[in-house]
Computed example of a mutant assay.
Amino acid sequence: MANWSDPRMTAAQGAPATGVGRDGAVVDAGLRSYMLSVYNYMTSGVLLTGIVALLFAQSGMAAQILMGPGILKYLIMFAPLAFVMVMSFGINRISYGTLQLLFWSFATVMGLSMASIFLVFTGTSIATTFFAVAAAFAGLSLFGYTTKKDLSGMGTFLIMGVVGLLVAMLINLFVQSSVMQLAISAIGVLIFAGLTAYDTQRIKSLYFHVAGTDMMGKTVIMGALSLYLDFVNMFTFLLQFMGQRD
């Protein structure tokens, strides 16, 4: 982590107003560029996933693989988790170029995994849910970016909620309760809505620690991965909660 200076701290220490203005302008421009890069990666990843999912579903192979028996189905389902773990735990060891490749590979594999939604839900409900989530995501991320309130406490609570959600989903694999599935979907939407605001603030704060270092490019990709997961999970849970099935 590089040493950094918050312009507000500089002003409090009595630096000349003109210097503070220039420093603030540089920080603001750098932060905007940093966040724009994060959103560009995240948006491109979501679009790539959607395109791959649609093409895979239309090919007919998705129905054979994802809806039938065989180990390939489970490889496709769990491959995205493997990519996330490699990227998260290997960020300090792998190069920026490798991290980029892993991100695009992850988005592609996620597309293969998510092709099943086109086999289960109507195209209208998928499109409606997508645009609803996109609008909600934009508002929540804007809140996380602009709020002065520290969301770290909420983030800890929400991460614990994700763990509880995973446990509930595992239990429901055996129970197969439609009521429990409905509750899981509703709670999942709320948890990842909160995480969208929290992750946005965390990514913004991280900029001041990595600005000017060789970690900056990597944190852009990892920030995009976090927001991507928030968006996709919110979309998936809302689709399960409100989507119309074929």
Rank of each mutant, 00 (worst) to 15 (best):
L238F: 05
G14Y: 06
A25E: 15
L99A: 03
D6W: 01
T122F: 02
I184P: 06
S205V: 00
L99C: 02
A82H: 06
A224C: 01
L81Y: 09
I94L: 10
L142R: 05
T147W: 01
D23C: 01
A115H: 03
A63M: 04
D199K: 13
L66A: 08
I76F: 08
V189C: 01
A186C: 00
L48D: 02
M154F: 08
V220G: 02
Q244I: 07
S226L: 15
M216L: 15
G14R: 07
I187E: 11
G212M: 02
G164F: 11
I126M: 02
M215R: 11
G188W: 00
L75W: 14
M35Y: 14
M1E: 09
T124S: 13
T213E: 07
K204C: 04
T122E: 06
S226N: 12
G19I: 09
Y96K: 06
G90W: 02
V86K: 11
F83E: 05
Y34N: 04
G144C: 11
F208T: 10
L54I: 07
N172W: 06
T10W: 12
V20R: 03
N92Q: 09
F106M: 12
L101Q: 10
Q201W: 04
M234C: 08
T219K: 11
V210H: 09
P69I: 03
A25C: 11
D199F: 15
A62N: 08
A17G: 05
F208D: 05
G217P: 00
S185F: 05
N40M: 10
S141P: 08
T122S: 12
F130Q: 01
I94Y: 05
G24K: 10
F174S: 10
S178C: 01
G217L: 01
A11H: 06
T196P: 10
A211C: 04
L173H: 10
F157M: 14
A134V: 11
Y207G: 13
L101T: 11
Y145K: 08
A15G: 11
V52N: 03
L140G: 07
S88N: 10
L31W: 12
D6P: 00
L55V: 13
L99M: 14
A168Q: 01
V179L: 12
K73R: 15
L140V: 10
F157A: 14
F89Q: 10
F137T: 00
I126G: 01
I159Q: 13
V210E: 11
T122W: 04
S205A: 09
T124L: 13
H209S: 13
L102R: 07
F56W: 09
L151I: 12
G68P: 05
L31R: 13
L99P: 01
L48I: 09
A135N: 00
V220I: 15
M215Y: 14
K148P: 00
M114A: 03
L81G: 10
T49V: 06
A11Y: 06
Y34M: 04
R202L: 14
N40V: 09
T98R: 05
A57L: 01
A115D: 02
A15H: 12
G144E: 08
A135E: 01
G139P: 08
Y96G: 02
S37F: 03
T146V: 12
K73W: 09
V27P: 03
I94F: 07
G60P: 12
G139Y: 09
T147I: 03
D199Y: 14
V109C: 06
L99N: 02
T200A: 12
F237E: 04
L166T: 05
M114S: 04
V220K: 04
A53D: 00
V27I: 13
P69M: 06
D6E: 02
L182K: 14
F121H: 04
